[in-house]
Design a protein around this nucleic acid. Structure first.
Lengths: 184, 184
DNA sequence: GTCTATAGATAGATAGAC
DNA sequence: GTCTATCTATCTATAGAC
């Protein structure tokens, strides 16, 4: 199917553009150039910029959830912290995340997707935390999610060295705190 | 001084615009309309859009640090968690934060300001955490900072009810975890 | 020195050719 | 049905009037 091929081709280029240039750099011209098509083709295949963004966001969310899935298979608490930091504290992922957040702020239709992502991550996290500590709650999972988001955003803003190492350390510390104490 | 008055007037309008509309809605036309001046005046008084954004960011960072200052004066752990959530988990603040992060990602000159903000908050947080637990480290303070950033971003993205209450609960939980256990 | 009118660039969307 | 050329809107920056 040529139509779906083209759509896929544009989607891939769009996601790559978002990862590299973030929300502000996500222009139809740039995506089109990357996909090797004319700008007006984006309109043809997706209608509006928002529709394209929604499709890209869908792709990104699925990808991120799939990446998270493998994180919690790690052998130890520390290795999981490291894997989680590696998946979440990535400038490329953070740019996509921020674009999604911004778009959701102004476009309610995207909020459901954001909730799906947040819930999906919390769900996957909860299982792991429960293995650490049977008294762990969904709140702990949401807390970890928020923490990883914050670490990612702060890192993009400050761009300091060793950010992944430090993020992994903080996640591990938090796991550790949750392990040693259960508190309602 | 008329010049400084005008600058101030424009700055105020610019900050308000950023708080309401976020990074994408931060256009010279909108700021000018709000300030009651012509768009070209922004160029006259600030040179470029980036320079204006830098000035606004400076203002916003100072304001946020000042707001944080009063947070840790709270009487109890729980009241501090609540106050912190009230200051950080605000859509208006989060929009400014996100705009700053995005700008810093592409404009290295703004990263110093982001680091200043992050360090400033961590510093102020550290004192409080140390009062909770003498073994607390700067890492705990950075962890709390990242957590509050993440809570703010997640809330802007999902816009769920009771977000401030839940954020306060998570911060309080984290304080509690840090209190009951010190771990290097 | 302050402000206006306008230019130049780029965004996204449309109408119509093939 | 697929693609091209074009159009309008909007953004930021400049040149020059007062």
């Amino acid at each position: 199917m040529t139509l779906n091929d083209r759509r896929q081709q544009i989607l891939t280029a769009a996601l790559a553009t978002l990862r590299e240039h973030g929300s502000a750099g996500f222009t139809q011209a740039r995506v089109a150039a990357r996909a090797g098509v004319r700008q007006s083709h984006l309109t043809y295949y997706f209608g509006t910029r928002l529709a394209l963004l929604q499709a890209v966001a869908r792709l990104a969310v699925d990808g991120q959830l799939a990446a998270i899935d493998s994180v919690f298979a790690g052998p130890s608490r520390t290795s999981v912290a490291k894997a989680l930091a590696n998946v979440t504290v990535r400038h490329e992922s953070t740019r996509v995340l921020m674009a999604l957040v911004q778009a959701a702020d102004q476009e309610p239709s995207l909020r459901a997707l954001c909730r799906e992502l947040a819930e999906g991550i919390a769900e996957r996290t909860e299982g792991f935390v429960k293995r650490l500590n049977v008294l762990a709650t969904r709140e702990h999972a949401h807390l970890l999610h928020a923490l990883s988001v914050g670490l990612a955003v702060v890192d993009l803003a400050t761009q300091r060295p060793n950010s992944k190492r430090r993020a992994a350390a903080m996640l591990d510390t938090t796991f550790s705190l949750m392990t040693s104490k259960a508190r309602s």
